[in-house]
Structures are given as C-alpha cells and as structure tokens.
Simulated scan of single mutants.
Amino acid sequence: MGFKRIKLVIEYDGSFFHGWQVQNNQLSVQGEIEKAIFKITGEKVSVTGSGRTDAGVHAFGQVAHFDTQSRIPAEKFAVVLNTVLPPSIAVISSKEVSPDFHARFSAIKKTYKYKVLNRPMRSPIMDKRAWHVPWPLDIESMNRAAAYFIGRHDFTAFCASGHNVKNFVREIYVSEWTEEEGCFVYTVTGNGFLYNMVRIMTGTMVEVGLNKRSAENIPELLEKKNRRLAGITAPPYGLYLWEVFYDEENPNGRPGREECFGGDDE
C-alpha cells in the first residue's frame, strides 16, 4: 500500500510547550502529535508544520502534514488523534492532500493575532493568554503606527537575532488594532514573518500607545534596518497563529522559499 499525505489543522495552548519544534528533553507540539500518530498507527512519522511557533505562543489554525500508510480514512485522523493527544492540543480537521502539498512552502499567507489586556489589574483568566499592560494605551496612535507596516518592506529592524535568513523583505496585507472582549487585539496578515517579527512590531506599537515614541517613527525604523532602534519584544503568551492560507486554485503550487516563508518563525 502506498503512502498518502494528510493535512491537519491544529489548535493548541502554547503555554504548556517549549514551542512547536521537537527538542531534546522538552515538551513540544510537534513531538506530541508525532507520538499520537505512533500510538494509533504504529508508524514513526515526521510532522511538518507551516512554521515554528516559539515557547508560549498559541495557535488556532496551525497547519501541518505527514505521510502515512495507515488504512485510517483521512477525515477520521482528527477524531482518533484527539483521543490520545493531551488536552492542550486538538486536531480541528484532517484530510488527504496531494503528495505535492507542503504545509510550509505551499502557504501563500498567514494571519497572526496578538492580545493585550489593558487595565490596571491583572487577570487570572487571561494569564498566559494576553500581555497585561496596566498603563493606558492610545489605540488610535497604535493604529496609525500599524498602517505604516502595510505594503512590501524590509523588516530587518523587526527581526530578532538567531535567524538564518538572508532576505528580510516581507509583504503585509492587513495591520490593525481592534477592541475585542476587553482586550486590544492586533491582527496582521502577511506573506511571511521573520523570527519574533510580530512580537517586536507589537512591542514597538505598545510603546507608541504609551507615548514613548511617535507613530511616525515606524517608517524611519523600516528605513534604518536596525533592530536596536525598534521597540521591545512583546511576550510570547499574547501571540496566536490564527490562520494559514493556501491557493485554492493551485493548492500544490510552491512559492519561492525566500520570497514567502523562508525563515518564518515566531
């Protein structure tokens, strides 16, 4: 029997894990899913995600794929995997895809959300779910700052050290702040993201909201390409990988690795 490729959409609470990627002696989302697949199929497989998420980062729509010879119907994998996965991880859907499909390199864009709890007192409910900023934030100035990120830019100033990419140009399609359920929520959609890029963008815009820098400082940061001039890196636990998009008309088409998702890592 030949291999078939299965696409998974996965939701997880990142506060329980040391990130997506398998690491020695550390709990990881990828590792738990691979162990679950082994339990139900007896196969040692490699699960490939659309991108790595850092320790503490959550996901509502992480996408991954793996190859299997199992007779389990593709649509049933979500059900059976959820019977053996820990409560902090759930497979939302599973389906068979073409052998050419690649969770990372077939993706054409991603959406992240970042949640900021802006009130004087901390919240036990939102602990590890949002960044608590106790001082008043000016969401209007934060939205002015967010608008400067839209378009195709070199994001060197918003990339943390530890990356392995050479091309820092990414295109942002959506960049805006809204108020949702007592939090300020930043939504950003782009064709790819550098290491800690969304968290540094968020940290910089929070500094704008605290009147520590001007919204009009953003174009200067993009132009000067110096990480030391940008703002702080927001903590990981407010960040959510929200959705990964694929070309429905050409689902197996692969964009260039550097052009879209080279180095994608939050």
Score class of each variant (00 low, 15 high):
Gly2Met: 13
Glu11Asp: 10
Phe16His: 14
His18Pro: 10
Trp20Ser: 10
Gln21Pro: 04
Ser28Trp: 12
Ser28Thr: 11
Gly31Trp: 10
Gly31Met: 09
Glu34Gln: 13
Ile37Tyr: 13
Ile37Leu: 15
Val47Ala: 04
Thr48Ile: 10
Thr48Leu: 01
Ser50Lys: 00
Arg52Leu: 02
Thr53Ala: 02
Gly61Cys: 08
Gly61Ile: 06
Gly61Leu: 11
Gln62Trp: 07
Phe66Arg: 01
Asp67Ala: 12
Thr68Asp: 12
Gln69Ala: 09
Ser70Val: 06
Arg71Val: 12
Ala74Tyr: 09
Val80Ile: 14
Asn82Leu: 05
Thr83Arg: 09
Pro87Ile: 00
Ile92Lys: 15
Ile92Ser: 07
Ser93Pro: 08
Glu96Ala: 10
Val97Ser: 11
Val97Leu: 11
Ser98Lys: 04
Ser98Cys: 14
Pro99Ile: 04
Phe101Glu: 05
Phe101Ile: 06
His102Met: 00
Ala103His: 01
Thr111Trp: 02
Lys115Ile: 00
Lys115Asp: 07
Leu117Asp: 13
Asn118Tyr: 13
Asn118Thr: 06
Arg119Met: 06
Met121Asp: 01
Arg122His: 07
Ser123Ala: 11
Lys128Val: 04
His132Asn: 09
His132Leu: 09
His132Pro: 15
His132Phe: 10
Pro134Ile: 09
Pro136His: 10
Leu137Gln: 13
Leu137Asp: 15
Ile139Leu: 15
Ile139Gln: 14
Ile139Gly: 09
Asn143Met: 06
Asn143Ala: 04
Asn143Phe: 05
Ala145Phe: 11
Ala146Gly: 14
Ile150Trp: 05
Ile150Tyr: 09
His153Leu: 10
Thr156Asn: 02
Ala157Glu: 07
Asn167Ala: 07
Tyr173Asn: 01
Ser175Cys: 11
Glu181Thr: 08
Cys183Trp: 00
Val185Lys: 10
Tyr186Arg: 05
Gly190Val: 11
Asn191Glu: 03
Met197Ser: 04
Val198Arg: 02
Val206Phe: 09
Glu207Asn: 08
Leu210Cys: 07
Ala215Glu: 03
Ala215Asn: 00
Lys224Ser: 06
Lys225Leu: 07
Asn226Val: 00
Arg228Val: 10
Leu229Arg: 05
Ala230Ser: 15
Gly231Tyr: 06
Thr233Ile: 13
Thr233Pro: 03
Pro236Asn: 05
Tyr237Trp: 15
Leu239Tyr: 07
Leu239Asn: 04
Leu239Thr: 04
Asp247Phe: 08
Glu249Lys: 07
Gly253Arg: 14
Arg254Asn: 02
Glu259Gly: 13
Cys260Thr: 00
Phe261Gly: 01
Phe261Lys: 02
Gly263Met: 05
Asp265Pro: 00
